[in-house]
């Protein structure tokens, strides 16, 4: 696949607007600013909701249709199982990629 200059625009926006700004926000603003308790509580659920919204379609959809029996889902289940059975940080990747290649 080939990407044009807009890829660099994408990097800049992800890096500056979506990553450095949230990280630097209150460190730079200092103690002048604060967020309401309710907002802080709700924000805690954002990563889990977002990660699932990205990864679930990726492993259950094949060519845009739901397909429960597909190599990616098998590989994903293998990787999740590996995180439960061992603390080895490499194992989910080894199990997941091996399952993906074997099931294809």
């Amino acid at each position: 696949m080939n990407y044009d200059w807009t890829l660099w625009l994408t990097f800049a926006l992800i890096g500056v607007v979506a990553t450095t700004l949230p990280r630097a926000s209150f460190i730079v603003l200092g103690e002048r600013a604060s967020l309401p308790e309710g907002v802080l509580k709700a924000l805690r659920y954002a990563p889990a909701a977002a990660l699932a919204a990205i990864v679930v379609p990726d492993v259950v959809l094949v060519n845009g249709a739901v397909d429960i029996i597909n190599p990616k889902l098998g590989a994903a289940l293998g990787a999740v199982l590996a995180t439960q059975l061992s603390r080895n940080p490499w194992l989910p990747f080894i199990v997941g990629m091996a399952a993906l290649w074997l099931l294809r």
Partner: peptide, 21 residues
């Protein structure tokens, strides 16, 4: 793409608030 990245990074706003002081 940008909004998705922002959402996964919202936790940093909380971390940043804790580090401000």
């Amino acid at each position: 793409i940008v909004v998705t990245a922002l959402v996964v990074n919202l936790r940093f706003v909380i971390f940043s608030a804790a580090l401000a002081r």
